[in-house]
Design a protein around this nucleic acid. Structure first.
Length: 239
DNA sequence: AAGCCGGGGGG
DNA sequence: CCCCCAGGCTT
């Protein structure tokens, strides 16, 4: 993929997102400045958790603790109770720990680089890239299960997951650009969630269909990741 | 590299 | 009813 074609795909995806992006509570219009605190909360909550499940918790948390200082001042037990039902309670502990670190050691400011964010408890490679891009416009591409699937299809990546992962990072880096990185990663995830689904992708509505290798190969119907780590596409069933 | 952690929604 | 998810941490 040449830089020019990567740029073209970027623009096409962003245009699609501008017209089709959902109005989620933690999203802001392009002319407003995102609040890193709200972005951080939304990304931690969305780890392995669906948007539908997260939304009411997000509203409740930012209503009760509007700032990172307020959250840092809360008792851990109160945070754990408020977290009840979201699962993965280690997230809640790291969440509270990070609030205290940011409030007391960083004067309430989140790190504004991907590397800095990565140091926070509960913030791994994905979340650091996502917050960096969305809250601070860092040209990072966060790779989650959704993005992994979209890119695996786009470039027809086969073989062991460990091998394809390095390929994914390489491909993702070619898409990294200073032009709206936060919108770009959200658009990529939204594409995976709404169109490029595992079982029944809606290729007709996809802004990337013309360049999609899996579609060209007729293997867009489904995608599986085997227990042994191999990724393969299953051919469209003959009807 | 593998196991573990929760819960809900979609197929 | 099974599968899988806007992952990260520990071993």
């Amino acid at each position: 993929m040449t830089p020019a074609s990567a740029a073209r795909l970027r623009r096409r995806l962003l245009a699609w997102y501008d017209g089709n992006g959902r109005d989620l509570p933690w999203r802001v219009s392009t002319d407003a400045t995102p609040d890193p605190y709200r972005i951080w909360i939304s990304e931690i909550m969305q780890q392995q958790t669906t948007v539908a499940a997260v939304t009411p918790y997000f509203e409740r948390f930012v209503g009760r603790w509007p700032t990172v200082q307020a959250l840092a001042a809360a008792q851990l037990d109160d945070v754990l109770v408020a977290w009840q039902g979201l699962g993965y309670y280690a997230r809640a502990r790291n969440f509270h720990k990070t609030a205290r670190i940011v409030a007391t050691e960083r004067d309430g400011r989140f790190p504004d680089t991907v590397e800095g964010l990565r140091e926070l408890p509960g913030v791994g490679a994905y979340t650091a890239a996502a917050i960096g891009a969305i809250a601070f416009e860092r040209p990072a591409v966060a790779i989650d299960a959704n993005v992994r699937l979209v890119l695996a299809r786009m470039f027809a990546l086969y073989g062991p997951l460990a091998a394809t992962d390095s390929r994914l990072v390489e491909i993702a880096e070619r898409f990294a650009a200073p032009d709206r990185p936060g919108d770009f990663i959200q658009a990529l995830m939204e594409l995976g969630e709404t169109l490029c689904s595992r079982r029944a992708p809606n290729c007709e509505a996809c802004p990337w269909r013309a360049a999609c290798e899996a579609r060209r190969l007729g293997r867009q119907e489904s995608y599986r990741e085997r227990a042994d780590g191999a990724i393969f596409f299953r051919r469209r069933p003959e009807s």
